[in-house]
């Protein structure tokens, strides 16, 4: 498979002075006007999807594979607060925005896509899961193109979000973002392999039959993981930010994968989810 186009918006939010990513500005750039009634979670979806599709007129049966680790946390928590704390009925619009297909509805309507659309989740491997589903559908001949995206938001207040993520209460920054690729069978500059799972980094190298020498990780490895990858040049995506305690968002692995894909050299992207499940995607191999 090949990457036709990609788009990645990785935004670092200062925990003390939180400024969130301006997704409406990205939407405005591609759609020309503001879309009413959509919350930030949906904005992140629509912004990323529109930017990745770009000027292309995609075939109407293009598959849309959306993924998220945590979903519409801001609006969902607002709904729960309305019900449990204020003893009120949730606002219809808030409730509708928490439903699984709402984000995809706006995106597919704008892009005039009517084929398969999914919303998937697999903890920190949500993007890789969506990628595998997209590849299965292209392989089976269901569609020629697939728009694969993942997005996770920072919900305010920050201290509540840190508790939800079981993160350190004094974390200085949090990531949020929207990360996309447009996948097709027709050869482009960037080839991408099917996601492969393993229970250890060494098993992953064997299963993929990795011949290259460069590995990019979407997580901070422990000593044992580094040891198993001996012989490989290891780059940890956003190493400095992670070392400084920045809390990765659910879609962080996708940001790493897309960064790797932009490098135009053979690279193995590895991402991890607890407890010790690894997923590898070979790029340009």
């Amino acid at each position: 498979m090949y990457i036709e186009n990609s788009y990645s918006l990785l935004h670092k939010v200062d925990a003390q002075n939180p400024v969130l990513a301006d997704a409406q500005a990205v939407i405005q750039q591609w759609h020309g006007k503001r879309i009413r009634r959509i919350d930030r979670y949906i904005q992140l979806c629509v912004a990323g999807g529109l930017a990745c599709a770009g000027e292309r007129k995609l075939p109407s049966n293009t598959g849309v594979y959306l993924s998220t680790r945590c979903g519409a946390v801001s609006t969902s928590s607002q709904v729960m607060h309305t019900i449990e704390s204020e003893n009120e009925l949730p606002k219809p619009l808030h409730f509708v925005n928490t439903l699984g297909n709402s984000a995809g509805f706006y995106l597919t309507q704008l892009l005039q896509l009517t084929g398969t659309a999914l919303v998937l989740s697999k903890e920190t491997l949500s993007f890789e899961a969506a990628l595998l589903h997209a590849m299965m559908d292209i392989n089976s001949g269901l569609c020629d193109y697939a728009l694969v995206g993942t997005f996770d938001e920072v919900a305010l207040p920050v201290d509540h979000q840190l508790q939800r993520l079981n993160a350190a209460p004094n974390a200085p920054h949090l990531f949020e973002g929207t990360h996309w690729l447009l996948l097709s069978k027709s050869a482009t500059n960037t080839a991408i392999g099917s996601p492969v799972y393993a229970r250890s980094p060494s098993e992953l190298l064997q299963k993929i039959k990795w011949q290259g020498s460069d590995v990019q990780l979407g997580f901070e490895p422990c000593e044992e993981e580094r040891h198993q990858l001996e012989g490989q040049t290891i780059e940890v995506f956003q190493n400095e930010a992670l070392a400084a305690g920045t809390v990765p968002h659910g879609a962080f692995g996708a940001a790493s994968l897309l960064d790797a894909a932009g490098k135009n050299t053979p690279l193995l992207h590895i991402n991890r989810t607890e407890p010790n499940h690894y997923c590898g995607v070979a790029i340009n191999a």
Binding site: R69, V73, S77, S121, E123, Q163
Partner: peptide
């Protein structure tokens, strides 16, 4: 202080 929607992560059950 109470955190609304304290449990997040759709994929947790499957894992």
């Amino acid at each position: 202080a109470a955190v609304s929607m304290p449990i997040v992560g759709y994929g947790k059950l499957a894992e």
